[in-house]
Design a protein around this nucleic acid. Structure first.
Lengths: 194, 194, 194, 194
DNA sequence: CATGAATGAGTGTTCATTCAT
DNA sequence: TATGAATGAACACTCATTCAT
């Protein structure tokens, strides 16, 4: 927009990440070109390459930043007793993470194919599997295992799918959480050791 | 494998669709080039243009063929009484459709961003919304509405997410169905008119 | 130069090779861009890619075409008795090949670094070594081995180095040959079996 | 290693030259980027520009340093009587220079195309021509002129070509020299003034 | 029913170079 | 002495699409 050479502050790297995530989420990874990103930032394409080695590297850096809370959550979960309370708390905290990094998760959800053979794709899938392992009991009935899968995917898809449904965002979040907790509760074997 | 067994003499059209769907599902829409498709078929790119107007047109034609059952299902649903039985039957039939056209649905799921502004993207979303409307009661509690959303997305994602879980495909399908039915049942207001 | 869409004859592939070799020899491989080649041909860069898979592929195709006589020469040489007569004949024939494909050999000579890790680089070096093996006796004195090397490199470099020296091309060629033959003769062990 | 032992306090300039020459010789001029050089030195690209005006300037500075002995040799040669003894001595001294600055000469040999329109290219060619003029008699038979050319190019190429031949470096050097001297001797008109 | 030949617009990436600090 | 941040021009290459034959 401006043509005055703004006193390049040191925040360019951050701005690239912000704009990139916005466009990636809006149009998809493949359909977002570096030209587009650089134009929106009013810098040249080459400037992007000063800050990031490749296009994928931009995505990786965003992912690394925003995904840290999920990693912490999983680490936390692994140290807790495998009680229903723990599971419920996992869902609550995961819900928070999902909302904090909504664009990233929306992006990951909608670009699974594009991202499959990128490093973030694999990492992301691994995280999801770890979370799942914290929720489900390995030798529960198949339907109960599905309930845990269902709880997770509902939290992901739910948030975006619900955009077209009336209601306050906070209410929707709670409703999604309630359903997820219900599913996990149902799946929880009340007395695993007996 | 296709729904309507169109016995075209020259089966090239069909073969293009098959190979295209396979590659689209495997690598994503954007990352699959017409060159790739034509090479796998051992014809020239130009040949594709004899059978289809554009790349998108290939996708549309696949979608039209494979999605017809879902359209029929929705049409059927709209004529039924809005009972719990109807809803359960909807889920059962939808589950069948999902399995018959698994690659297509997997593709739609994993390429949401890529197809968002393609006609199939919109159509697909509309279908899903119509299905949802058949399952949920418009003025049910928010959580109950979420349960219906959850039932649907679980059916979609569930099938693919469960690939890494042990068990026979048929068993998994039934488990997914059981969970979906459970959610919809819970969401069904037992006496809407009272 | 014209803008009238000339009736694309089927010789484009050949024309690409011709122009490419010309530019490669004139400016070097790295400094010759595909844009340059295509502009000189009045086609688009993409057209080059219809005929050749990569830039290197253009070079390889030229090399394959023009280097065939040398391959034949070596094959012939391997079947001859290792007499001085054979060696002289090898030099004469090699001199012919050098002149027939002068631009290519000039190119190879002046772009050794650029071509070192291209396939043509290795192939070319191998050919030269095979030729050398046909000229020199493996256990001759070191100086005699050098004489054979010298004969070969003199033929290569000589032709181009002599551009700035007066004289008819045919005379120069014969002079170079005379010197090369002299060197090889001197190096030839008159009675290897004694 | 360098000719004039300029004991610059900050030795960065020297280090740049060393690394640059190493990479230029190894990979070629065009294929060696300033990024590569600076990374190998663990400084920034911009630092190179403090010491040298351009990429070419780096090459020029290396060339100027290492080529001085050749210039001196030519100046010396021009003052000597044009006897066979002088010519032999020229070859011996040139051989020394070649070995002292082997990487540079290897580089010049393998990158003729790349440096053709750089100043070093022209200078280098001029030096070679001057040397040649000291060796050959202007109105000798063509073949004798070729012998002198051959002596020179054999010294250049010979050293590198011989890498794949067995033998001690010192022996090879002497063998090359022997051959060169032989050629020049043969070319020397025994009684030019008579 | 299909191909051979080509195009125009685009992609991600690299380069030598600049300049305020 | 050097760097951090950026640029402009180029590069090799790919893509969906067209059209005469």
């Amino acid at each position: 927009m401006g043509s005055t050479p703004q006193p390049r502050r040191g925040n360019t790297r951050q701005r690239i990440q912000d704009v990139a995530l916005e466009l990636f989420a809006e149009q998809g990874y493949e359909k977002t070109s570096l030209r587009e990103i650089s134009e929106k930032l009013d810098v040249t394409k080459a400037a992007l390459y000063y800050h990031f080695k490749t296009k994928e590297d931009i995505l990786v850096s965003i992912f690394d930043d925003l995904n840290r809370p999920v990693e912490k959550l999983i680490a936390w979960g692994k140290e807790q007793p495998r009680t229903l309370e723990t599971k419920k708390e996992l869902l609550v905290r995961y819900s928070d993470a999902l909302i904090d990094a909504a664009p990233l998760f929306r992006f990951m959800q909608e670009n699974q194919a594009a991202v499959r053979d990128l490093s973030v794709g694999e990492t992301s899938k691994k995280r999801l599997m770890e979370l799942l392992d914290l929720l489900k009991d390995p030798d529960a009935a198949l339907a109960d295992q599905v309930r845990c899968v269902s709880a997770l995917v509902s939290m992901h898809a739910g948030m975006f799918f619900l955009k077209d449904v009336d209601g306050k965002v906070e209410d929707k979040r709670e409703a999604v959480l309630e359903v997820a907790v219900g599913l996990v509760t149902q799946a929880h074997s009340p007395d695993p050791a007996k």
